[in-house]
Design a protein around this nucleic acid. Structure first.
Length: 136
DNA sequence: CGTTTGACTACGC
DNA sequence: CGCGTAGCCAAAC
């Protein structure tokens, strides 16, 4: 379903992308999924349905020793996906607020303010997703 | 092995 | 809005 750079698993690709999200910004499972090139033999629509859950699975399976800004990944509604009131949800919100992300009275963030718009060109180039140099 | 479980989403009420 | 549900399938039981 994914076409990551050689030898990289889908999970690793997800973790790598999450690492690119800067402090104070957030992304959603679906957005991250859309940043991973779909496998050529899979229908785009099918990919769209599946990928977000796989991103969630990847996050859940993040190795203990691996340090990534996991708190910057929330759901498409702009809210935290852990059950409200759970220790994990509290921790995620705390970490995000610490970097300046604000939540409204319903526990949602304003994507217009804090949405991350994807990896920068340098990253894409490194992954072979853009020509070595801007074509200009 | 068959069954259950998700850090999801889009959509319909 | 909030809530329920179908669609989906790799992992974990």
């Amino acid at each position: 379903m994914f076409n990551p750079p050689d030898a990289q698993t889908f999970f690793e690709t997800v973790w790598d992308i999450v690492l690119q999200i800067p402090p104070g910004k957030v992304s959603s499972y679906g957005q991250i999924a859309s940043m991973i090139p779909p496998r050529a033999d899979m229908e785009p629509e099918r990919m769209r349905n599946l990928a977000p859950r796989w991103v969630g699975t990847a996050m859940r399976k993040t190795p203990r020793g691996k340090s990534i800004p996991w708190q910057r990944v929330i759901n498409s509604q702009g809210s935290i996906s852990f059950p409200a009131g759970s220790p994990q949800a509290e921790e995620q919100r705390r970490l995000l607020e610490m970097e300046g992300v604000e939540f409204d009275d319903r526990g949602k963030v304003d994507f217009a303010l804090v949405a991350w718009h994807g990896p920068d060109d340098a990253y894409l180039r490194r992954q072979g997703l853009l020509p070595p140099r801007p074509l200009k």
